[in-house]
Computed example of a mutant assay.
Amino acid sequence: MAPRFHMVESGPRPVAPFSHAVEDDGWVILTGQMPTDPAAPDAPLPEGIEAQTRRVMDNLALILGKLDLGLEHVVQCRCFLTAFERDYALFNDTYKSYFPANRLPARTTVGVTALAVGALVEIDLIARRPTGEVS
């Protein structure tokens, strides 16, 4: 089966040339999401790392949901923070609230010098469809 490239009509407006997700053989890779509001893409970003992390996680969940998946299907996340030392602890508190304590995906978190649209955080992820399910 060839890879499938997904654009979610109600998803966040892309800030670069990419698909929201690419799927192959049950693996679903979501492009890094920014803390933009899909309903108001030109609105200012939320203030602070907690609000931006929530918006990013909600955007990821929205895309997964449109692909008949949820955060429970996530196996790995990559997280990027522009103010790593300042924001890491609060970011972790917010991020982990989206997953059961016994079901945390594998994760890498990296401090970076800048992100698109002036964001404080960006997260991409890999999810896996349950065996036998293909969308």
Rank of each mutant, 00 (worst) to 15 (best):
R107V: 02
G70N: 12
P12K: 02
L62R: 13
T82Q: 05
A89K: 05
E9Q: 06
I63L: 09
D58V: 01
L69H: 13
D25N: 10
R54H: 13
T82Y: 04
V22G: 00
A114I: 01
I126N: 02
K96N: 06
L120S: 15
P35D: 03
T131H: 08
M1F: 02
Y88D: 09
A119E: 08
E122D: 02
F80Q: 05
I123Y: 11
P100S: 08
C79T: 06
S19V: 02
M1V: 11
A39Y: 05
L67R: 06
L115H: 13
A119R: 03
D87Y: 01
N92M: 09
V75M: 13
F5N: 08
A2R: 01
L71H: 13
A21V: 04
V112E: 14
D42P: 00
I49D: 09
R13W: 01
F18D: 14
T108S: 06
D42Q: 07
R86K: 13
L120K: 10
D93Q: 10
A39S: 12
A106S: 07
R78I: 07
C77V: 15
T53Q: 06
V110R: 12
I126C: 11
L69S: 05
L71E: 15
A16N: 07
V74P: 11
P130C: 00
R86C: 03
S97C: 05
L62T: 12
G70A: 07
V8W: 05
D68Q: 08
D37C: 03
G118F: 00
P17I: 05
L45N: 12
D24L: 08
V56L: 09
V15N: 08
I63P: 09
S19T: 04
A119S: 10
P46G: 01
R128T: 11
T94K: 00
L30E: 08
L120R: 14
V15G: 01
V74N: 09
P14E: 07
R55T: 14
V56S: 05
D37W: 10
L64C: 07
F5Q: 06
W27F: 14
R55C: 10
T53G: 00
S10G: 03
E23L: 05
F5S: 04
R78P: 09
E9F: 12
R107C: 01
F91Q: 11
T31V: 02
E72S: 13
A101P: 10
L71D: 15
I126L: 09
T36A: 03
D93R: 12
T82F: 01
K66D: 15
G70M: 00
F18T: 12
A39N: 11
G132V: 08
T113H: 10
L104G: 05
E50C: 00
E47Q: 03
D42Y: 12
E23N: 04
A2K: 01
R55D: 05
A106P: 07
A101F: 07
L67V: 10
E23Q: 06
A61S: 11
P35F: 14
D93V: 07
M7W: 13
P46I: 01
